[in-house]
Amino acid sequence: MVEVKPNHLIKVKRNQVFAFTMLSLAAALTVLILLAIVIYVMSQGLSVISMEFLLDSPKSMGAEGGIYPAIVGTIYLVGLVILIAAPIGVGTAIYLNEYMPDGRFKSVLRFATELLAAIPSIVHGMFGFLFFVIALGDYTGGWSILSGALTGVVMILPIIIRASEEALRSVSNNLKEGSLALGTTRWYTIKKIVLPLAIPGITTSIILAIGRVIGETAAFLLTLGGSLLLATTVFDGARTLALHLYLVAMETGNTEMAFGTGAVLIVLILIINLAATGLFKLLVRRFSA
């Protein structure tokens, strides 16, 4: 019996070393693949990137010229989606988590949110097309940034609601009770204790949502209209960089221009992520000070 123990321990140790090696290899592989893709796209696209490419309008369906309208379209769309979805999503999460009593209705609502999150984006696109573009066309301008944004909102609301709820739920009940027991209202407690602690999680959910909007093509193909013109209002049609990439590759076959767009898309995602992370750190510092 006494001899078994060290053997056993050695085996545990060996298993640990093995597991650790495999996990680090997997992690390294992931990073490598990611880097390879980024480097490949960049190297293919870099040759076409220039000031003109960034600031000119496309010619011949995007086979020539620049991508300025698509950059502007992307920023408009993401901005509008977040502007609408963030308050609704976070508000819903707060209501669900802090005010609504547990019960059947709440379970149904949660289930519906899960379901909504699992719907393929092309179905969202179809819905957006029929509802926002056609049925509400008089108000949304038909194929337009507004129609696309509303479709995007429906698509990402479940992401924001679920992740925000998760973040709110993680705030310890002891702290909430501590605040309420001092004679503060529920809303004051949410504002001063719950939200500051949940802000990191909520911000992450919004960054995820932004990523989803920037990368999405199917839903916006059917709702944005894919206009090559520079959008000036939310009622104008537009295209995003991802959509532009897809359309250029499919319609003109000009892979150089497509890769150029891809490279810009990657850089834009990087910038937005960095900005959001910075914003998040700022928020945390402000709230915890």
Binding site: L175, E177, G178, S288
Partner: peptide, 12 residues
């Protein structure tokens, strides 16, 4: 007012 069993200072 209440003092709880486990100290629960706010993280501020």
């Amino acid at each position: 007012g209440t003092v709880f069993q486990k100290p629960n200072p706010f993280p501020i």
